[in-house]
């Protein structure tokens, strides 16, 4: 479904940082991939390259066979099939919850008002927040806001969902409610790429874990292999520090 071929990415601000060095990977439909690693390891950059929020200076990313770094590609079409959930939620504060979940449907999917509102309500019901449909984002807790952000993405019927540390900005008691929604999605067969520090989530639902450090993929494999019997010393050190 997504094929990453030898991508490189360097940031020059504030000083030269090699965020991605020769990264390749293949994500299959229906797979749940969890990307973990210390901060500054390039895992968020990797994720943000997948829908071209960052452009790699070398290499290719094929999404369903389409090279997304090709300037001729209509990136908006590709993005419409790939939902992204952010660490800081990024809900639209000037719109109600319902507005947040309907606006992309309206502008990108061109759905009718009745259709998009029915869809939005069904999904808000699913993430357990339908009673807040007419509230504004500022009146919601962090966990509720993140569930709305997931609903906003789901309303677009995406083929893939990208999660960029979805629980890192949450109070501890709200992490569970967001992870529950993500687990439900994983069970339903959604293709997911998830950057997270939630090791429990990785163990429970990941089909594959990718460990990154200094812009490279150090190790990847099943959660069982990764957590119980990793091959590399760097992985062992990382696991020792966090567990």
């Amino acid at each position: 479904m997504i094929e990453v071929k030898n991508i490189y990415k360097t940031f020059f601000v504030p000083h030269e940082v090699k965020a991605l060095v020769d990264v390749s990977n293949k994500i299959e439909a229906g797979e749940v991939v969890v990307v973990i690693g210390p901060s500054g390891s390039g895992k968020s950059t990797f994720l943000r390259c997948l829908n071209r929020l960052e452009t790699a200076e070398q290499g290719q990313i094929l999404v369903d066979g389409v090279d997304i770094f090709d300037p001729k590609v209509d990136i908006n079409k590709v993005r419409a099939e790939m939902g992204m959930v952010f660490q800081s939620f990024n809900l639209f504060p000037h719109l109600s919850i319902l507005g947040n979940v309907t606006i992309t449907q309206k502008l990108v999917r061109k759905r009718s008002k009745v259709e998009r509102e029915r869809k939005a309500m069904a999904i808000l019901e699913k993430v357990g927040i339908a009673d807040k449909a007419h509230a504004h984002p500022s009146n919601l807790s962090g966990g509720q806001q993140q569930r709305v952000a997931i609903a906003r993405v789901l309303a677009m019927d995406p083929k893939i969902m990208l999660f960029d540390e979805p629980t890192s900005a949450l109070d501890p008691e709200m992490i569970g409610e967001v992870l529950d929604v993500m687990k439900t999605l994983a069970r339903e067969g959604m293709t997911m790429v998830c950057v997270t520090h939630e090791m429990g989530f990785a163990k429970e639902v990941a089909d594959r874990v990718i460990f990154m450090d200094e812009g490279k993929i150090v190790e990847e494999g099943t959660p069982k292999h990764f957590f119980e019997n990793p091959d590399h010393d760097r992985t062992k050190l990382f696991l020792k520090q966090i567990l």
Partner: peptide
């Protein structure tokens, strides 16, 4: 405006 707002909008496929 927080840059995350543009990213949220664009990542959903808006022009």
């Amino acid at each position: 405006i927080h840059p995350g707002q543009v990213e949220a909008a664009r990542s959903g496929g808006m022009t």
